[in-house]
């Protein structure tokens, strides 16, 4: 169980997180919505300890990340998968080597597997995200959306306990977005994974979420299910989901 309590973070003079409280339920899909630049990616990185909070704690199964040393943190991270917003594929490796990387380096040590077996595994996983015949390409030869999907394949190739997706459907066409949404849902129901999805895509939100959280001004201003979200009268939330340019949310802040 992941619990975030009173998280504060500032970069230079800019306050990004201003007391975020969030608990992520096991076996559910939690989506985090919010404006571009409001700190969604920063929040997600705090959950896996890539950023250290100025104040507040992140606990995983009641152990605070702040209490872990580097080795303990690495051990803890074996439970996680993370889809980076920019994909973060290793550009010195081919696509298939990227996809099976979490298997080959499971637990931080190199494991030896048959190359054929790994390639087959990569092929199957890439198929799940709608990619064919790209195994031997280099990441630099892929389009933006293909990079995203290859990175997604890498995130789901081993069976982690938690998957954090940073904007899994941004930059994808509507059909592919639907396929990915479906995949996220299926991983959750069939394998019982706990997922956190950061997204702007409201259709995606309605399709995948068990719980929706809205981040605004460094805090969680709404938390609830999709029907609750649609009926909520919070003007900030309303403006966001109805795509209005007038309302309490000021752009350019």
């Amino acid at each position: 169980m992941i619990e975030v309590k009173g998280l504060y973070k500032r970069f230079h003079d800019k306050e990004v997180l201003n007391g975020v409280d969030l608990s992520i339920e096991e076996g559910k899909i939690t989506t985090i919505i919010g404006q571009s630049g409001c700190g969604k990616s920063v929040l997600l990185k705090h959950i896996v300890g890539l950023h250290r909070p100025d104040k507040g704690t992140v606990t995983i199964d009641d152990v605070s990340l702040a209490d872990m040393d580097d080795d303990a943190l690495r051990a803890c991270r074996t439970q996680f998968s993370y889809l980076f917003q920019g994909g973060a594929l290793f550009d010195s490796l081919s696509v298939w080597e990227n996809v099976v990387f979490p298997l080959v380096w499971a637990g931080g040590h190199h494991h030896h597997y048959e190359k054929d077996m790994l390639q087959e595994k990569a092929r199957q996983t890439l198929e799940l995200v709608g990619m064919h015949h790209v195994e031997n390409m280099k990441p630099s030869e892929l389009s933006g959306g293909m990079k995203k999907r290859a990175a997604l394949a890498r995130a789901i190739v081993h069976n982690p306990r938690y998957i954090l997706y940073d904007e899994p459907t941004t930059g994808l066409d509507p059909v592919m977005s639907a396929v990915i949404d479906d995949l996220i849902r299926r991983l959750n129901t069939e394998l019982g994974l706990t997922s956190v999805v950061v997204t702007h895509d409201m259709q995606s939100v309605s399709h995948v979420s068990d719980q929706v959280c809205m981040l605004y001004d460094g805090r969680i201003v709404f938390k609830g299910s999709v029907p609750e979200m649609n009926q909520n009268s919070n003007p900030i939330l309303k403006q966001f989901i109805k795509r209005k340019n007038k309302g309490p949310i000021l752009f350019g802040r």
């Binding site: 990185k45 896996v48 890539l50 580097d70 690495r74 051990a75 991270r77 074996t78 996680f80 998968s81 993370y82 980076f84 920019g86 973060a88 594929l89 290793f90 550009d91 990387f101 979490p102 380096w105 499971a106 637990g107 931080g108």
Partner: peptide, 22 residues
């Protein structure tokens, strides 16, 4: 440096791989 700014070093960390070792 390129790996750092494109978050590839973070990706290693997430996969429990020690960047110093790798």
């Amino acid at each position: 440096g390129t790996m750092r700014i494109s978050e590839q070093i973070d990706a290693l960390e997430i996969m429990s791989v020690n960047p110093h070792n790798y």
